[in-house]
Design a protein around this nucleic acid. Sequence first.
DNA 1: CATTGCAGTCTACAATTGTCAACTGTGTAT
DNA 2: ATACACAGTTGACAATTGTAGACTGCAATG
Lengths: 125, 125
Amino acid sequence: MSDHLACKITGSELEVMKLLWHAGEALPVTEIREKLQEAKGWEPATIKTLVSRLVSKGAVRQEKRNVYFYSPTISEKEYSAWATGDLITRLYHGSARELVAALVNADGLTQKDLDELRQMFKVED
Amino acid sequence: MSDHLACKITGSELEVMKLLWHAGEALPVTEIREKLQEAKGWEPATIKTLVSRLVSKGAVRQEKRNVYFYSPTISEKEYSAWATGDLITRLYHGSARELVAALVNADGLTQKDLDELRQMFKVED
DNA sequence: CATTGCAGTCTACAATTGTCAACTGTGTAT
DNA sequence: ATACACAGTTGACAATTGTAGACTGCAATG
């Protein structure tokens, strides 16, 4: 929730982060490049820039191992929590409840979602 | 939820939108300027630029009335819904339920929030 | 009617973001 | 030992964003 983290990951960078998050282990650029080249159609140069920028802003750690291996310094959960908090601050007057209420009132949730959430709320507390 | 809207309102622009949303009626720049100059410490020029950009991107309508009056073309609800959908797509695999689950599991909600939500979920269905 | 203040428009400029090419050094294959 | 491929670095360039000055014309005020 603290907004002084090395967050502020941009759209393209987020794609790199997702790859690393889902990999679950440090990856060499080779692999990052292959995956994103295919998935996004980006040139190797583009991918290398994104990885570098993420390292610069501290969102990715690079560890020397013959060739560098890259891994996130912030988890997907943490980042999602930060971005969600940011949204709540900016658009829901800082109230998470307002956000949920908006989802419930819009058609953002299916019946199944609602059922599952009801279940969750029952368990909580 | 459709992302082809004239959305993508930036941080500074959002402050202008909020002012207009909360005003609930078309405002002349004079008023926008006064409020934001005080609230944000921005120069008049800055505020005029932001308003112009919002008009350009179609988020604000300008109506001639001796001097121009400005009003949003998209409601706060609509924009919030769009931005929330965007977040859900980008970080919660398109599942609103995942977002809510994350809020429940994190400490994003107070006990009071939880109570009120439980109430909401009871009524829904 | 002349003055003044400010709305509206144009221009500007640095920082960030999306994309990528060029260069450099080194590990791997021949 | 040599060559090749590619990781890592540097630089680049257009679009967007944050912030603001300058100019122009109208509208209110004396």
